[in-house]
Amino acid sequence: MEEILKQTQERWFVFLEKLEARMEEMCTAAIPELKKVFEEDQDPFKRAHGRMLSGLLGQLRQMREKADEVREEKIIGTMYSVGDIAYDFREACYDRHNEFEEKLQRYTELLEETAERRDLEAFYQEQLAAFEAIRDKFTCKQCGGKITISKMFFIATYMTCSYCQTQNTFLPSTGAQLVLHQARSLAEQRTAHLQKAYEDGYPNDPLLYKQYLRAMFDEWNKIVPDMAAENEKFYLRLLKDNNIEHP
């Protein structure tokens, strides 16, 4: 009996070591490639990077399933067949499996970080500069009079010519449209320290949550002022959902 346990445990350890070594090899080779693909991906949504990342995560998942299957069949199976004496065996095998899971988790995070390092602030500043450069370059399609774009728009907008009163339609650049979609994430990045302060508290302090939320919405509104009225309604809903009184 003891011998079976010893052998099974050894095989389990070797098996997980091999999986870990393969995982390390794959991720170490993949991360620089993944970063390169991210940088070179011309798609506004970085979808080539997304596909490659998801393929790698798929392989990690496949390794996890493989380990789970063996644990189910061989480790738990052995425990049932020998009964009470398996206590140490179980502890050792489970601990080793947890270690494997932790490694897998760390590699998952490392792979995902190749995208998270995306600098939303820099992109936003680029778009602001791009808008400054074009805002007085437009003319009325009817009379040729100059139309200066009063502020940064994020969706298609009617624009009245001050000379002939004609309604023109201004279509913002793809970059400006993306700012609208990234505004909340950027505001969250800017106020991440406040969110962390709230999450680190034990027990969580609702006041800190409110502080974070208010600061995040203030940043959000600064980025897309046109949406401030709508954002405030969403803000009130979040307060209500979290049972926080207003004001």
Binding site: A48, C140, Q167, N168, F170
Partner: peptide, 17 residues
Amino acid sequence: NYGGDGTFEEARMEVRD
């Protein structure tokens, strides 16, 4: 890419008579 390649387009002005 699903739905074709996304491209970065410049801002522009249009009018409808």
